[in-house]
């Protein structure tokens, strides 16, 4: 099992830095299951995390507002009818309910099998233990208790600076404190895995939990017109895996204009003369089948041709 940050080999002096991966590849993390297969988890990026948190805050405020409105109605109803005990009970429910909602919302939802609050579910995120083990209740508790210094500490300093407009020294102190506390709030931006302070302390991270749908195998679609398209080995071998995946995307999206453009490019490259009434879709499907067949056969023999420039 991989543990982030473990077994970091000592860097030799003046070793050239490997180029930083960019784009989606930069967020892929090796995550080997006990069965020895790397699941290649993608960690949630800062934007997704922030969006999920904002959604959660909105939901939480909504729930608290509803609780408040209901209890104010109940409270005034009891007051008007003179049942003081019941009115007091409503007040107790408010004090405890507010505390429970604001503290339990994150914890309870992250302890469910989905391991995600509603905001995270919408953003397709979930919490996971960094060491690949179980997500324990302690970890969930720890990561959410830390929110105190990530969110409420900066807010408190803002409140303090607003409250101290009369005293410039207090104001500057509050500003200083605010700057210091922002370090906690923006902690996720300063590390590779977008860990917030809570994740750091709880040994968790937030990963994408996308639900991919299995669509049809594009090869199934071409069975009918196979005979019509007989590509020579040179024609079928004009491209590599990268181009194959682009072609796959084009075929799955089925945008008429793109298909026409791509078909023209490929016909030009392989020197294919379109027969009368040959549709772009049929041509592209057939070429996809031929290219994939050729590349996969070579794959079985150990040649993985990256792209069209790869001549190995």
């Amino acid at each position: 099992m991989t543990v982030q940050g473990q077994a970091r080999p000592a860097k030799p002096l003046k070793a050239p830095k490997p180029p930083k991966p960019t784009g989606p590849a930069a967020r892929l993390r090796e995550f080997v299951t006990p069965e020895g297969v790397d699941l290649r988890l993608r960690i949630g990026d800062a934007g997704e995390r922030a969006a999920a948190f904002i959604l959660d805050v909105v939901f939480l405020f909504g729930a608290i507002l509803v609780l408040w409105i209901v209890l104010v109605l109940v409270f005034s109803a009891f007051r008007l009818t003179g049942q003081k005990d019941m009115a007091d009970a409503a007040e107790v429910v408010w004090v405890l309910g507010f505390f429970l909602l604001s503290n339990a919302y994150f914890i309870v939802l992250e302890l469910t099998p989905r391991a995600a609050t509603f905001g995270k579910r919408i953003m397709g995120l979930r919490v996971a233990s960094r060491d690949g083990g179980r997500l324990t209740a302690e970890a969930v508790f720890a990561r959410n208790a830390m929110r105190e210094i990530e969110i409420f500490l900066p807010l408190q300093f803002i409140a303090a600076s607003i409250g101290s407009v009369v005293d410039p020294i207090d104001g500057w102190l509050a500003l200083l404190g605010f700057g210091w506390s922002l370090g906690f709030a923006f902690f996720p931006l300063f590390n590779r895995d977008r860990l917030r302070v809570g994740d750091f302390v709880a040994g968790t991270w937030v990963v994408k939990a996308p639900k991919e749908r299995l669509s049809i195998d594009l090869l199934d679609a071409v069975e009918a017109g196979r005979a019509q398209f007989a590509f020579t080995p040179e024609q079928a071998g004009a491209y590599g895996i990268k181009e194959l995946h682009v072609l796959e995307d084009v075929l799955r999206r089925r945008d008429r204009k793109t298909m026409a453009a791509v078909a023209t490019r490929i016909r030009g490259k392989i020197g294919w003369h379109a027969a009368d009434g040959e549709s772009d879709l049929a041509f592209l499907s057939a070429y996809y089948a031929a290219l994939r067949g050729r590349l996969e056969t070579r794959l079985l023999f150990g040649h993985r041709r990256k792209d069209k420039f790869d001549t190995a």
């Binding site: 970890a139 508790f141 720890a142 709880a202 040994g203």
Partner: peptide
């Protein structure tokens, strides 16, 4: 241990106490 590991182990046992 690495700082990440140490913080995580400490955080979990401390969170049990905190609950």
């Amino acid at each position: 241990r690495t700082r990440l590991d140490a913080a995580a182990t400490a955080g979990r046992s401390a969170a049990g106490v905190l609950a």
